[in-house]
Write a protein that binds this DNA or RNA. Structure first.
Lengths: 215, 215
DNA sequence: GCGTAAATTGAACGATCAATCAAATGACCG
DNA sequence: CGGTCATTTGATTGATCGTTCAATTTACGC
C-alpha cells in the first residue's frame, strides 16, 4: 500500500478553479484567488492553461469525467430499478443542496446560464454534460420500458427529468428553501405514477390506444 | 395627444443596465458600458444609485413591476381557460428564446444562479419575482380547479410549471436548440392530460379515491 | 555528473474595474 | 433677478483584473 501521490500543480489549480467557479461563479472568481487557494504562482497556471477560458474548459472536462463515477454510479449501486434510480438521483441533488445551506447548486447549470452565450468551447462541453446526463437517465428508463406507456418518448422524458432537476434547484437555491424542489419532484413522481398506471392498463388491453396519446 | 416625455437619465440608465445584465450577466457588465449605452456620466449614475448592487436592485424592481403588464397580461388576453393559459405562457417564453437566437433566456433565472448567494437584497427580489410568477399561474389553475384531481396541490403545481420553464430554457439556450424545451413542455402537457382524465373519472365516480393519490 | 527540457518563481504590465467629488449647469420658486 | 436645491459633468482615484516573461529550480535520460 503506497501513499497516494501528492496532487500535481495542475490538479491543485484545476480543483481550486472548479470549487471557486462553483462557489462564486466564473466572472466573480479572480485568477489571483485561484492562485492563492491552490498555492500556485501565475506562471505555473499559465504554463498549463493558455488563459482563463482554457481553465474553464479544463474544469468542464473534469466534470465530464466525473459524471458517472461521482453522480450516476452511486445511484446505480443503490438500486437496479430504472424508475427508482431517477428519484434517487433527484433526491441526491436535493440533499446536496440542502446540506450546503442552499448555496452553489448544480455547477453545470450555473455555468450554462453565465457563460453559454459567449464561450463557444465551454458551451459545447456544457451541452455534452447535459447530453451525457440525459443519456444515462435515458438508459435507466429503457430498462423500465415495459412499465411505461408504449408511446412515451423516453429520450424526451430524460430531458424532462433534467429540466425538473435544474429548474427545481434554481428555485430552491434562490429561496433558500427546499420546498419548490420537493414540490417539483413530487409532481414528477405523480406523473410517473400516472404513466405506470396507464402502462398497466395498456398491458391488460393488449395494445389498445392510450388516453394520453396525442398523436 | 402630447409627445411622450423623453426618458429621464435614471430611466435610461436603468434600461441600459437591465438590457446589459440580461445580455451579458451582472459581473460581466461594466459600469462604463452602462454609461456609454445610456449616454450618461458616472456621477449621474451614482447620483441615483449608491453602487452597482443598488442598480441591480433597481433592475429587479423594474422586472417586478413589469411581470403582469408584459408577461401575464397578454396571456390572459389570449384566453380565459386557466390550463390553456399555462401553455400559452410557456409557448411565449419558448418563442422569445428562439427568436433571439437562443441567447439570454429568462433574466430572473440568470440572475438567480449568478448573484443569489452573495447579494441578499437581490435574492429577496428574485424570490419575490418567482413567487409572483407562481402565484399568478396558481390563480389560473384555481380557475380550472374542477378539471383537475381533487387532491392536486395547485400551489406546488405552479412551482412545477416554473421549474419546467426555467429548466427547459436553460437546456435549450445552452444547446441553441429548442428541442429540449419543447420536449419538456410536451411532457408537462401529457401530465396535464392525464390529470384531466383522472379528474373526469373522479367526477363520474363521485369522490372515489384516485390512482395517483400518494397520501 | 552533464545536458536538456519541464516546471516553477514572482515581479511587473497595461487595461479595466467600481467609485469619488469638486465644479458647472439646470430647474423651479419667490 | 436671486436663491436654492437637484442634476450633470468628467477627470481622477486606488484596487483589481488577466496576462507576460526572464530567471531560477527541478526532474530525468545518458
Amino acid at each position: 500500500m503506497t501513499a497516494p501521490d501528492p496532487p500535481s500543480s495542475r490538479d491543485r489549480i484545476l480543483e481550486a478553479a472548479r470549487r471557486l467557479f462553483h462557489e462564486q461563479g466564473f466572472h466573480a472568481t479572480g485568477i489571483s484567488t485561484i492562485l492563492r487557494e491552490s498555492s500556485a504562482n501565475s506562471g505555473t497556471l499559465y504554463h498549463y492553461f493558455d488563459n482563463k477560458d482554457a481553465l474553464l474548459v479544463g474544469v468542464l472536462e473534469y466534470y465530464t469525467r466525473l459524471l458517472h463515477p461521482a453522480v450516476m454510479g452511486p445511484v446505480e449501486q443503490a438500486t437496479g430499478d430504472g424508475i427508482e434510480r431517477v428519484f434517487i438521483l433527484l433526491q441526491n441533488y436535493r440533499d446536496g443542496l440542502a446540506s450546503l445551506d442552499f448555496r452553489m447548486g448544480c455547477p453545470i447549470g450555473n455555468l450554462a446560464l453565465e457563460v453559454a452565450d459567449d464561450h463557444a468551447a465551454a458551451r459545447d462541453l456544457i451541452v455534452r454534460n447535459f447530453e451525457n446526463w440525459a443519456a444515462n437517465v435515458h438508459a435507466w428508463l429503457e430498462s423500465a420500458r415495459d412499465r411505461l406507456p408504449f408511446s412515451t418518448d423516453l429520450a424526451a422524458m430524460s430531458r424532462f427529468i433534467l429540466t425538473v432537476m435544474e429548474g427545481g434547484m434554481m428555485q430552491a437555491r434562490a429561496a433558500r428553501d427546499i420546498a419548490p424542489m420537493d414540490q417539483s419532484i413530487a409532481h414528477l413522481r405523480a406523473y410517473f405514477d400516472l404513466l405506470q398506471t396507464q402502462a398497466a392498463a395498456e398491458r391488460t388491453a393488449r395494445g389498445g390506444n392510450s388516453p394520453g396519446d396525442r398523436s
